[in-house]
Nucleic acid binder design. Structure first.
Length: 121
DNA sequence: ATTCTAACA
DNA sequence: TGTTAGTA
């Protein structure tokens, strides 16, 4: 995972900050957590801590609600996206395996090397 | 001052 | 969803 992604997934924001950033009430934010739409961490004092990804997640939830979707609907959308991501990752790994296989066959040029062929003596 | 849980005139 | 009480 990249350094950038790690920062986005760091849970450091208290609910008050999240309220300002999302224009959601504390009640709504806690309610969405109750229904497993978001999963903030907890501090030692049992305070909720949100990450930037959580913020994005909450903003998406806000849009879905505005479009008239209920909690169950939103859950499904997120699960659908989850499956799509799995499928995407499978493809990536598939391509990787396929590429390596073609490289061994000596057909494809290795793009991780020089942009031009190296002359052999 | 903030946030948390639980509950509802 | 709002609001309020009693805490931590």
């Amino acid at each position: 995972m990249s350094e950038k992604e790690l920062r986005r997934s760091m849970a450091v924001l208290p609910i008050g900050t999240v309220m300002k950033l999302t224009s959601l009430t504390a009640r709504q934010i806690r309610y969405y957590e109750e229904n497993e739409l978001v999963f903030p961490d907890r501090s030692e004092g049992n305070r909720r801590l949100f990450s930037l990804n959580d913020i994005d997640r909450l903003l998406e939830i806000k849009d879905f609600i505005a479009e008239g979707l209920n909690i169950a609907d939103i859950k499904q959308r997120f699960e659908q996206r989850k499956e799509e991501l799995k499928r995407s990752i499978s493809d990536t790994q598939m391509r990787k395996i396929l590429r390596e296989e073609l490289l061994q066959t000596g057909r494809l040029s290795d793009d991780s090397g020089p942009a031009f062929p190296i002359k052999r003596v």
